[in-house]
Write a protein that binds this DNA or RNA. Sequence first.
DNA 1: CGTACACTTGAGTAGGATCAATTGAAGTGG
DNA 2: CCACTTCAATTGATCCTACTCAAGTGTACG
Lengths: 193, 193
Amino acid sequence: NPHLYTVLKGWGFRYKLLPDGRRQIVNYVMPGDLVGLQGSLMGEMQHSIEALTPMLLCVFERGELMSLYRAHPDLAYDVTWLASREESMLDENLLSVGRRSATERLAYLLAFLVTRARSAGLTGGAAEELPITQSHVADTLGLSLVHTNRTARKLAARGLLRWRDRACAVLDVDGLMRHARWERPAEGVRPFL
Amino acid sequence: NPHLYTVLKGWGFRYKLLPDGRRQIVNYVMPGDLVGLQGSLMGEMQHSIEALTPMLLCVFERGELMSLYRAHPDLAYDVTWLASREESMLDENLLSVGRRSATERLAYLLAFLVTRARSAGLTGGAAEELPITQSHVADTLGLSLVHTNRTARKLAARGLLRWRDRACAVLDVDGLMRHARWERPAEGVRPFL
DNA sequence: CGTACACTTGAGTAGGATCAATTGAAGTGG
DNA sequence: CCACTTCAATTGATCCTACTCAAGTGTACG
């Protein structure tokens, strides 16, 4: 439905499907993210969303967006900031899927998710415990489930991660970043709506 | 440099590099597009831009953006609209690179570019003549140059395209869309800044 | 003319896909 | 409480898509 939401609690993901069922997860959503902007602006969303954990959302009425832009230009600016951040995450994911090897891709994805979780305010063990299954990872990286598993096992053998209880425990973020050849950009002041 | 531009004429592309030189083209820019929004909002751009043909740009001063948001909420809305459209194009490209076969990817990319060129106001043969080389295509699709060439030859043999003069002539857009299993979403009213 | 770049083609290889089967944990219903 | 199903993770074996290496052609340009 064409509403705009702010995520207050929980994890989810955005994905697209091909007619024959192939699925591509394009990004994850977590607290502080804006969901449904495309639908609000352009009439219909070109992707679907699914929850990974129970989520708590704050609803904006679809029509309110224009009046918010008139009444609160600084909030409008923040909305655009968040859209722009989403764009740069997608750029990074595209680089990963297009040009990194399977191992690098997995390492990048996990480091990326932990970094985002921390910046979303999750602290301690909560940020390093990702509520995703290997099929989510496969459909994010553009790999088969089997190969994703083998790749994960390799990184697990090196002590970088551990899979248990349909969640992934990230043990060494810096190690993963090195594997992925990822230089995390410094995130400036980040608006929370 | 951290300015904001509107493209008036010409084609270009946005790309990212890995430390060892691997390149991923994340999207193309053409007339009517906004360039440099990330830099204006978040301080630094996480990608580079290169021109494919001579380009004519209209410059916005970087600091003006906030005052534009205060003075012209409807323009601010249009800026967000364009950012949101960029996001949905990136989603689509990610689906393509992650889940389509080489042939499907190439077919999708060409159909996508022609569709965009038309919606940017290029008419007649100009829209079907794409000013890109096969290495651009390779770095967009996440394929090697050699395999891109072989894939292109296959589609050329079926009469869907023709390569000449470091440009690609698209002969049958509908055929390409069918090959790619791409259902082009209807684009609503589109703002030009 | 010589160099550079875009495109092309052949041959051999490898990274990842597919097919198939097993284990274990978590419901679910009788 | 136990058969039955389902779903996540795992592993082996085989196949194929796409990569790498290598060489050759044509065109543009200094």
